[in-house]
Design a protein around this nucleic acid. Structure first.
Length: 518
RNA sequence: GCCAGGGUAGCUCAGUGGUAGAGCAGGAGACUCAUAAGCUCUUGGUCGGCAGUUCAAAUCUGCCCCUUGGUACCA
């Protein structure tokens, strides 16, 4: 008898990136966003399973490999290394990295395709269109010039007929329409669902899912016709199911996915139309939710004033650390909307929030403790109005930020956290421990102890809340203030007096500022 | 064309019916523990435009303008 008392995983995925390309800001953002959600859920106690990966088949990969005189798989291996390197440099906590050329995936795709073929969801038909031999692809009306001619780059264009396999989409159109209407949480942000419903108002055509092998070899063969490979969507989308362990015991623990994190460009039709219908036809449960993010605008186009060279946003990871990068993209992007990337904004956030407010605060605390307390955090002696206000501020921040993070409002959540950091700096000014230290009054001595404790404790709390976004910083600060994070996250976010008696580390510059450009 | 998002202080953005907000940038000041950081005060907006609903609108309705994206077998 099978035991059913397992805990359902929180299964979250990114879209898989196409192997014929280099990592850019958009890839980096999607991984960071997903990782922030994954870390947040993990800290909240969920059993998180997080997968990202690479989409490796298709015509462009085949063409690029051919142009370089290498095998397609060699090109994919390079890309896999490159994208996995990106994950590593961003501190991404994915549990798996799926590649669509892996046997486990080919096997799943074959199984599904055969099932759908057997039950009549896939049929063969002839397709007529304009074909460019040079580009090795069929062209669309929109590919034409304004004068109605085919552009030069396509060379000779001829109208040809080709037999292909098609997947029946339309039979589930009404069902999908109903599903999206009734499941409010299926698409986040909600307004994106309107676009899908709009799309579904018109009758949808069936989806061409194959390419003849004579045109495309680099793909998964159709199990029921060796002359064809499957093309794009069955190959790419089913990665989510493969990675969840379809066909193994793990599958029922992980599936359905809690979130597919995707860009707005692949919502309609792939993830919101093809994917649900494919799953419905295959009799597999639907993912619970699609988390749709916007785009970074003008990425990589900003010029450095001093050198005149283009700044690659990804260079900033190495230059200022992964936490700074993660902070920037999470703080600036309102999930669902677009945001503009610029070096100026980046440096403003880095200098102002990270270096001046947070990093400098830690410096002051460590210096004062080293100077007057031999590096040991004193116990609090009293609680006056200023302390009460500080802790009240924390309670409000803590509650509100968790609420915002639950709703993916990371940008506002981070804003709240840094408002709290500011309040610690304000508290320090009001208490002025550097003045208290010079007083002979015993009450002032009590206040001094209290102040240093309160500053240390509030910094501990603030960086604790930052952990999903800035895990390295959290760890580093914990270590510097002599805090052992042995309890679970929720408990660590509650104020206590355990820091009293801790020995702190030497003064450390968390976020060094770059030399001022002149 | 149609559909959707955005249009709030110089910049980036919060704010869904009740006297316009934050951060950054700019200006002034006091302080000195600190990464010339932090703190206090301050300049700055007829909330894209025009109508309408309402005792009251950035917030609801209509039209228009600008901008981003989608408009399928394209990754």
């Amino acid at each position: 008898m099978r035991r059913i008392n397992f805990m359902k995983s929180f299964y979250i995925t990114t879209a898989i990136d196409y192997a014929n390309g280099k990592p850019h800001l958009g890839h980096a953002y999607e991984k960071v966003l997903t990782d922030v959600v994954a870390r947040f859920r993990r800290l909240m106690g969920d059993d998180v399973y997080f997968v990202t990966g690479l989409d490796e088949h298709g015509q462009k990969v085949q063409q690029s490999a051919k142009a370089r005189g290498i095998e397609p798989i060699e090109l994919c291996d390079e890309a896999a290394e490159s994208f996995q390197g990106l994950c590593k440099s961003l501190n991404i906590t994915n549990d798996d990295f799926i590649r669509t050329t892996e046997d486990r995936h080919k096997s799943v795709v074959s199984t599904i395709l055969q099932k759908l073929f057997d039950q009549g969801d896939i049929y063969k038909a002839e397709y007529t269109g304009y074909y460019s031999r040079r580009a090795e692809q069929f062209l669309q009306e929109k590919d034409k010039n304004e004068d109605g001619e085919w552009p030069e780059i396509f060379g000779e264009v001829e109208e040809i007929a080709e037999s292909n396999y098609f997947f029946k989409l339309s039979r589930h159109q009404d069902w999908l329409n109903d599903h999206i209407k009734t499941n409010e949480s299926f698409i986040f942000p909600r307004f994106r669902a309107k676009q899908v419903l709009e799309f579904l108002k018109e009758p949808i055509n069936d989806l061409c899912i194959s390419r003849p092998k004579e045109r495309l070899e680099w793909g998964i063969p159709l199990p029921f016709d060796a002359d064809y490979v499957t093309y794009v969507w069955f190959d790419a989308l089913f990665n989510y199911v493969t990675a969840a362990g379809f066909g193994t015991d793990e599958f029922e623990k992980r599936w359905p996915a809690d979130f597919h994190v995707i860009g707005k460009d692949i919502l309609v039709p792939p993830h919101a139309v093809y994917w649900p219908i494919m799953l419905k036809a295959a009799e597999i449960e639907l993912p619970k939710s699609l988390l749709v993010h916007g785009w970074w605008l003008k990425s990589g186009e900003k010029m450095s004033k001093s050198t005149g060279t283009v700044v690659d946003p990804l260079d900033l990871i190495e230059q200022f650390g992964s936490d700074a990068f993660r902070y920037f993209v999470t703080r600036e992007m309102n999930v669902g909307q677009d945001s503009e990337f610029s070096l100026e904004r980046y440096m403003a956030r880095y200098n102002s929030d990270l270096a001046n407010d947070l990093g400098n605060l830690l410096s002051r605390v460590l210096t004062m403790l080293a100077r007057g307390f031999e590096g040991v955090i004193p116990a609090p002696q009293l609680e006056e109005t200023l302390e009460e206000a500080l802790w009240k501020g924390w309670d409000e921040t803590h509650a509100k930020v968790l609420e915002l993070f639950e709703e993916f409002q990371f940008h506002t959540g981070l804003e709240r956290i840094f408002l709290f950091v500011s309040s610690i700096n304000r508290y320090a000014e009001q208490r002025a421990p550097w003045k208290l230290a010079k007083s002979e009054d015993p009450l002032d001595k009590q206040r001094l102890d209290t102040t240093l404790f309160a500053m240390s404790e509030s910094v501990r709390l603030a960086v604790g809340l930052l952990e999903p976004v800035m895990p390295e910083t959290t760890e580093k600060v914990y270590s510097l203030i002599g805090y052992d994070p042995d309890s679970e996250w929720k408990a660590r976010l509650v104020r206590n007096e355990k820091l009293a008696g801790s020995t702190v580390g030497a003064k450390t510059i968390l976020f060094p500022k770059p030399p001022v450009e002149t």
